[in-house]
């Protein structure tokens, strides 16, 4: 049997008195598509940093492609490609020069470098922009170029930290399709962190991280089967109505904007609930079992306030681009 692509055991890491990772254990088989799901501050970036050898852990074992990252960081680095959450391109250099730099730093010989640069530029459809200085690239083009760069040295394991921010649906699909092909052909393992549910549904293995702990792990379907319940999201008419409902349904969850989530055991429960409280509600919405509802069940919180979040991230990306 081949070694797992990632092996983490009892990993603990804290800084400034706060525990970022608390006894995390995790195994990802080679060739898998793995998604790490969790809200901001759950410890996703800390875990990636440790696996990428940028940061040390307090205790526990972290291995990448069978190599202990703490003991043999250089060896581990050779087998990983990383796309960071924030752009790490040099925007005074052209697309081609950024890739050339990467190839040189990874010690690739000239001919192979040229060949691979052409291949990855083709993949992300940036061949026409190879001589263009990165400064003039849009956010989506930068992302694509970064993914191309991370694949340049043919890593066994690809880390994507919040990879698809700012990408249009078409590009996203294309990149996933290519990554899937690489997984099949070369046993590439893809490690993604995200807080977008859509990203996760297609992966082989999902891990939900919250407060530095793994709260659930498995394939998307098994997680749904195990943890997902149907929920009824309701908007009460006023605060008094809300209190009444909360008192009557003790296992309801409070959501943002004064909404409540009512757990439903079966379809008949909906009718019973609406019959009882229908007059107190301004709006109701039925939520079928999904990973989002898995997350809600496990943590008692929504994964995120979707629109506000996306807006904030894109704003930050824009500011970065502007400041350069």
């Amino acid at each position: 049997m081949t070694k797992p692509a990632v092996f983490v055991e009892n990993l603990t890491c804290s800084y400034a008195g706060k525990r970022a990772l608390d006894g995390v254990s995790l195994t990802i088989p080679t060739g898998a598509s793995f998604s790490l799901l969790g809200p901001n501050g759950a410890g996703k970036t800390t875990l990636i940093n440790i696996l990428c050898t940028l940061q040390g852990a307090d205790s526990g074992i972290a291995m990448v492609a069978g190599v202990d990252v703490a003991r043999h960081p250089t060896q581990a680095r050779n087998s990983i490609g990383v796309v960071f959450q924030d752009s790490s391109l040099d925007d005074r250099l052209s697309a081609w020069e950024n890739l050339e730099f990467h190839g040189l730093v990874y010690g690739m010989p000239a001919r192979k470098r040229r060949q691979r640069i052409d291949a990855v530029l083709d993949l992300v459809e940036l061949s026409d922009w190879r001589e263009t200085v990165v400064r003039s690239f849009s956010g989506g083009m930068r992302r694509r170029l970064e993914i191309a760069r991370a694949l340049l040295h043919e890593p066994a394991l690809l880390f994507l930290d919040e990879p698809t921010v700012g990408l249009d649906a078409q590009t996203r699909q294309r990149i996933w399709a290519y990554l899937d092909q690489l997984r099949r052909e070369r046993d590439l393992t893809v490690f993604t962190t995200t807080h977008y549910i859509e990203e996760v549904e297609g992966s082989d293995q999902v891990c939900i991280l919250d407060g530095g702990r793994i709260v659930a792990e498995g394939s998307p379907q098994s997680l749904k089967d195990e943890y997902a319940r149907s929920w009824l999201h309701v908007v009460p008419l006023d605060a008094a109505a809300r209190d009444t409902i909360a008192a009557a349904v003790p296992d309801c969850r409070e959501l943002s904007h004064g909404r409540l989530a009512i757990p439903l055991a079966g379809a008949d429960k909906v009718d019973a609930f609406l019959g009882q409280f229908g007059s107190l509600l301004a709006e109701t919405r039925y939520e079928p079992p999904s990973l989002e509802s898995v997350f809600l069940s496990l943590t008692g919180r929504e994964l995120r306030d979707r629109m506000a979040d996306r807006h904030a991230i894109e704003q930050a990306a824009g500011r970065r681009a502007g400041r350069r």
Partner: peptide, 14 residues
């Protein structure tokens, strides 16, 4: 500040 250093730090360069 702008993250480029990390690109180099995850590379196999000592």
């Amino acid at each position: 500040e702008f993250g480029f250093l990390r690109e180099v730090l995850v590379s196999p360069m000592p």
